[in-house]
């Protein structure tokens, strides 16, 4: 690992200014489970690392009926997954978080990190996409909100400007979420998704999100509109799963072939839809 300058600011302002002052080769450090690997392998070699874990407000996790759930950028996945409110009101998010890596990784990694890496297979991206989450961003020109589906641009590329820092993720409050998360992988524990999917039913509206099927995690909007207004019969589910698969553009890699992934999208979505219909 190449050496670098390390800063641990205690405010967002300070952190953002540091990033801007140090230029393009300054990198944010949060949980570090991705960045440290990339630094060890020499894929990323920042001159400056800005550790945001010293910023208190980023460790908050809070809920209110109006604003919904806020998960601070530095909340580790295990804390989020086992948070009482998350377990009660956003079970699908808790389940997705629990499927990331090992217990040791989840004690360090965060959901914000999971999505900011913009890995096509980020498990927590699917419940966030399905729940229309918003990413709260602090920047030199003030704060802004990015709808989660606009965050992902391409493989490992997000729509954040240099100097911007994600404060956390906000998930709207919903009356009653019926949701289901599916992960298809080679090994059950501690594995990357071959395909991951989340389906939520909110007042009769069905939303479908997929990961590991395209350059970014996606919503299967055609499948959603096909379902709209229909009763979830076996036939409708079968057809919706096919449509969802047609919206994806998976690749072949060492984990699976393209054909297998397409098959698995259908299976995952079918399982999701079956779970939410009852």
């Amino acid at each position: 690992m190449k050496n670098f300058e390390y800063f641990k600011p205690s405010t967002l302002k300070e952190a953002s200014e540091l990033l801007i002052k140090k230029g393009a080769n300054a990198h944010i450090l949060n949980g570090g489970t991705d960045l440290i690997i990339r630094m060890k392998e020499g894929i990323t070699s920042p001159d400056v690392v800005v550790d945001i874990k010293g910023i208190k407000e980023l460790h908050n996790i809070k809920f209110d009926e109006k604003e919904g759930l806020f998960v601070g950028a530095c909340v580790v996945l295990n804390d989020m997954a086992h948070n009482q409110i998350v377990k009660e009101k956003y079970k699908v998010l808790s389940n997705a978080a629990k499927s990331v890596g090992s217990g040791q990784i989840r004690n360090k990694a965060t959901m914000t990190g999971n999505i900011c890496n913009a890995s096509p297979l980020a498990d927590t991206s699917t419940p966030l996409l399905a729940l229309d989450a918003k990413v709260l961003v602090y920047g030199p020109n003030g704060e802004r909100e990015i709808p989660i589906n606009e965050l992902f641009v391409w493989v490992r590329k997000v729509s954040l400007e240099h100097g911007e820092i994600v404060k956390g993720v906000r998930i709207p409050a919903y009356e009653n979420i019926i949701g289901d998360f599916q992960k298809i992988s080679r090994r059950k524990e501690v594995d990357l998704s071959t395909v991951a999917s989340t389906v939520v039913k909110i007042n009769d509206e069905i939303r479908i999100a997929l990961a590991s099927v395209a350059p970014t995690p996606i919503r299967a909007r055609k499948a959603e509109s096909f379902i709209k207004g229909k009763k979830l019969t076996d036939e409708v589910i079968e057809e919706a799963a096919k449509i969802a698969a047609s919206e994806a553009s998976p690749i072949e890699d060492v984990r699976a072939s393209k054909e297998y992934r397409i098959e698995m999208i259908k299976i995952a979505v079918k399982r999701n839809l079956n779970a939410v219909r009852s």
Binding site: R186, R187, K188, E189, V190, D191, V254, R255
Partner: peptide, 27 residues
């Protein structure tokens, strides 16, 4: 169930525990 060191034209494709899976306690 899982183990295979894969190659393409002599190049090893999965020389890590990320993509060469061995059993865990759960298996």
């Amino acid at each position: 169930l899982w183990e295979e060191l894969k190659f393409k034209d002599g190049k090893p494709l999965n020389p890590s525990f990320v993509d060469y899976k061995i059993p865990t306690a759960n298996d």
